[in-house]
């Protein structure tokens, strides 16, 4: 059993709060993810779990053992928490086998050899034991870094931007590969990334962090479809917040007409709200009461991403199949195709 619990974690450098009141739980065998823009505090939080930073307030427990609070700090080497770094940090003076056995040197040489063979098999690099790190490609080095971290059978595995050095096209594939390996080992893990596709491909649950605060801890699906606030709505996927006025408990009036869906209870009629419009919520049609002008166009292969301006000046994004080509400046008609409504109480725009 490996259950990680963070309770009301604060981390401050001198007077600067880097992490603020973060609480979360990763259940045994689950893969969690801390997602956010750079400087949001996600790496600091990860390093606090590893034991490289101390917490100012709150507590971190692993399997019920308190490992960090304001006056407890178990040093990193005593935590049995493995870590994979963005630059892999393989030991360049040691060969692959010695890298992997670095953390299990007290075991017998037979046990070590068995573990090396087993892990190289797991990361699909059998026969690389005697190679040196500089002879390996980036992707191979990364898998060895993973094998090395898994060797001592840590209670928890931390991955700091593990695919950051890879080509963008490779990242998702690698993320799925690593997920498979971790799931096979039944590993509890936390990933830190700024790339939501990586997060979706790898994690069971994702926490979105902004300015040191946890905005939402949820599945990828819910982050996209039920964002808790405007920041999450803007950060996950693309979209535009369209201003609207609440009419009743399931209707909001907008520039695109009345839209229907659950209105949060905090929003009384007459209350100004924002309605999240994803690019795939809009259709360009031959005729509708809502004319718009094409102001930008991005070709995406299968689709076009259009930037549209309504008559009142508000702007929207629309994703359409790429055979529907409209030049910039063209007049089009749009129609809302909302599967469900995301209404956010504030008008703060991101």
């Amino acid at each position: 059993m490996s259950k990680l619990t963070l309770q009301n974690i604060h981390i401050r450098y001198s007077n600067n709060a880097v992490v603020h009141a973060v609480s979360l739980t990763v259940e045994d065998g689950q893969i969690g993810c801390l997602l956010g823009p750079s400087g949001c505090g996600k790496t600091t939080l990860l390093r606090a779990i590893a034991g490289f930073e101390s917490v100012t307030q709150g507590s971190i427990t692993l399997n019920g053992q308190l490992i960090s609070d304001h006056n407890t700090h178990l040093p990193p080497e005593k935590r049995t928490i493995g870590m994979v770094f963005q630059d892999y940090a393989l030991f360049p003076h040691l060969n692959i086998a010695d890298n992997i056995t670095f953390g299990i040197r007290k075991q017998s040489s037979q046990d070590k050899a068995r573990r090396v063979a087993e892990l190289l098999e797991l990361v699909n690099l059998p026969g690389y034991a005697k190679r040196y790190p500089h002879e390996l490609s980036g992707g191979q080095q990364q898998r060895i870094a993973l094998a090395r971290a898994l060797a001592p059978r840590p209670r928890l595995l931390l991955l700091d931007e593990p695919f950051g050095s890879q080509d963008v096209e490779l990242r998702e594939m690698l993320a799925r590969e690593v997920r498979d390996i971790l799931k096979r080992e039944g590993m509890t893990a936390i990933l830190v990334t700024h790339d939501q596709h990586e997060a979706f491909a790898m994690a069971d649950e994702i926490g979105v962090l902004q300015q040191g605060r946890l905005q939402q801890w949820d599945t990828g699906y819910n982050l996209y479809h039920k964002p808790a606030n405007a920041f999450v709505a803007g950060f996950i996927g693309q979209g535009v917040l369209l201003p609207g006025i609440v009419l009743n408990h399931n209707t909001v009036a907008t520039a695109l007409g009345n839209v229907h869906g659950d209105v949060p209870e905090s929003c009384q009629p007459e209350c100004p709200v924002s309605v999240l419009i994803r690019p795939d919520d809009l259709r360009l049609v031959a005729d509708s009461p809502h004319p718009a002008t094409v102001i930008s166009r991005g070709f995406r292969g299968a689709e076009y991403l259009y930037g549209l301006a309504l008559n009142d000046g508000s702007q929207l994004l629309a994703l359409t199949p790429s055979h529907q080509a409209h030049p910039i400046g063209a007049s089009v008609c749009i129609e809302l195709d909302l599967q469900h409504l995301v209404i956010l109480p504030t008008l703060t725009s991101y």
Partner: peptide, 15 residues
């Protein structure tokens, strides 16, 4: 030396 190399060594049980 990348500080990560030293930190990795810490996470692998060396003080």
């Amino acid at each position: 030396q990348s500080i990560c190399v030293l930190e990795v060594s810490r996470t692998l049980g060396s003080n």
